[in-house]
Nucleic acid binder design. Structure first.
Lengths: 351, 351
DNA sequence: AGGTACTGTGGGAGCGCTCCCACAAGTGAT
DNA sequence: ATCACTTGTGGGAGCGCTCCCACAGTACCT
């Protein structure tokens, strides 16, 4: 009859205190049960859990965040100025993995755009205010100041696609080197002999690793190095087209092309068409990413698939480990980790 | 010398109280300045702003949320079980608009996946706990219980793609009816006479509106209604293929097809190929969405573009208006609003 | 018997805000 | 001079948690 006072403006969601009263225990005990502390007797735990269920109690995140000085949220920073980004299956699949991994936890996912200067400014403030426990960084350029900022603020972060071999942040990547080798070995296996490579943006570490894989695969197969068969692209369609045209001019005898992305391959295809080369009869074409474009291209494009969904999962695993490690109870033990996941060649008609 | 006590575990971020001390005013006054209350003298305001700048003060969101019983966060719910969804430019572009509109505000964006039953359960709890101020709903099925739940909980929500003409939630949509008319009128203008339509999933309101637009455009051009020219698809590639095959069987004389999505059109293209029909020579093809697939198809696909980025913006505008309306100070005035944005036909080689 | 250790529990203090009441000072009508 | 507002301001109370200290109870040593 009394004690209705606690139910106020919020629409009457039950509080810890109400659960405690119902279960006939103290506030601290309920908190322990909610947070899975082992220091609670079985009988008490059961009583509390019953009260929680009856009242439909859900902890108030804001109160928890305030009291415990954590947020139970992580941010996914989308750095591209042109957020075409999303349209890439790369991103959507990763998000899928991230979502799946996250659904096993209490963490929530914040999407933060950092395309414009304005947005980056806001992001910096945001991080300075420690409004997230950790950050997921996707496709960061070599000269981006963000990773440095994160280190300074001591905010756990995981990057997809390390910036260099000496990446200081925890990172998750696919095996760009191995993927490139798979592509080249596949082409060699199909009897191709003069295999060109259109690279990605050279300031992207992954693109460098693909070049390395391309070179090593050819060398180990006994082919002499030929830099004339390598032309720089930039992951764009237009870049692929230009690079292909340049290659055809330099080495009209080429019979295969390994492009650093599917979009690049789409550009290369135009150039090949214009030059009257048939795919795969005259020139075999292999892309990278196994995106929707690869499936819908004419002819369908052989491509190197990255296990992107798994990468998303792995990023969350790493990040949560780092976050946990920062918490007061943790034993500061975690070594920096770099994960590399295997790729897979998806054969289609273009080769 | 004393008073360093306040700087504790959090790493020393300044609090309201510290700002107040620095500016030589009370806590309440700083709060008023931060929240833009007019009841502050200019001199005081300037002093507080100076202190805020010097200290690099950023409000603690958790404390604010707890005290004010709001979150300053909105959720974007991704309902698809298979989150291929993201790969659609539809989604990525909308996200772009949402991000742009949001960057003018203090609101943060939460991404919530509601594909599996497990995730939906979590979402329900989440909403019950009122952990967001508002919800953005994308591509919701007619029988989804989510909108109902949102109404019950009195959480402001905006839906993209209303579920019916009598949508009760605020909604933003593109002009499906007009877009379909544009497609058909374009084909008629190109001299096509026997125009078929492969529909989207019939339980999607937008798909119905496209059918209406298709019918009306033909009727107004003086064509007799011919239900044999309409075949149900489901927005999928395979559905498009099957529907096209069925149409070719029934009406081998057709000379144009309007597909309810680009992916559907891609499927239709395969069926046309298999039947030996050339595009556009024998059969003209028009899609819907103007996605990456349309640009990369062979031949490039004429398609109806929706102003999706603007739709994202509009959704945020509507939602924020509703959220503001729920706040204590608001004058409960807002009428339910349904926004419809115009489409545009992008002509390419397929027609 | 007393000491020591552990386990389980209650509840005070405090996280950093917002809300709101109280009140000083100013303004103008009576 | 008094009263009645208005404007600007200070600061108490309280949001719902977590953290941690205190303490009762039990167990096992000396």
């Amino acid at each position: 009859m009394a004690s209705h006072g606690a139910r106020g403006r919020g629409g009457g969601r039950p509080t810890l205190e109400e659960v405690a009263a119902r279960a006939g225990v103290g506030r601290g005990t309920v908190s322990r049960v909610i947070n899975g502390s082992p220091r609670v007797s079985d009988a008490t735990r059961a009583a509390v859990e019953a009260a929680v269920a009856e009242l439909g109690y859900v902890p108030n995140t804001a109160a928890r965040a305030l009291a415990a000085n954590r947020t139970d949220a992580i941010a996914l920073v989308v750095p591209e100025p042109e957020t075409r980004f999303f349209a890439e299956p790369y991103f959507s699949d990763m998000l899928r993995g991230v979502g799946a991994a996250l659904s096993d936890t209490e963490m929530q996912l914040l999407l933060i755009f950092a395309g414009s200067d304005r947005e980056r400014q806001r992001l910096a403030e945001y991080l300075a205010a420690h409004r997230v426990d950790g950050v997921l960084l996707v496709s960061v350029h070599a000269d981006d100041p963000l990773p440095e900022l994160l280190s300074q603020l001591e905010i756990p972060a995981v990057i997809s696609g390390p910036r260099s071999a000496a990446e200081t942040l925890a990172s998750v990547d696919s095996d760009n080197y191995g993927g490139a080798r798979q592509a080249v070995e596949h082409l060699l296996g199909r009897g191709r002999r003069t295999i060109a490579h259109i690279t990605g943006r050279l300031d992207v570490y992954g693109a460098q690793r693909r070049i390395d894989g391309y070179r090593d695969a050819l060398r180990e197969a006994g082919h002499a190095a030929d830099e004339l068969l390598i032309e720089a692209g930039d992951f764009s369609e237009d870049g692929g087209r230009r690079a292909m045209a340049a290659l055809l001019e330099r080495r009209p005898d080429l019979d295969a092309v390994f492009a650093a992305s599917d979009v690049t391959a789409a550009g290369a295809r135009y150039a090949l068409r214009e030059a009257g080369r048939r795919i795969p009869d005259d020139v075999a074409l292999v892309g990278y990413d196994d995106s929707a474009i690869a499936r819908h291209m004419d002819p369908p494009l052989t491509s190197v698939r990255q296990p992107i969904e798994e990468m998303g999962r792995a990023m969350i695993d790493l990040l949560l480990a780092e976050v946990a490690d920062r918490r007061p109870t943790a034993t500061r033990e975690l070594e920096r980790r770099q994960m590399v996941l295997a790729t897979e060649l998806v054969g289609r008609a273009s080769s």
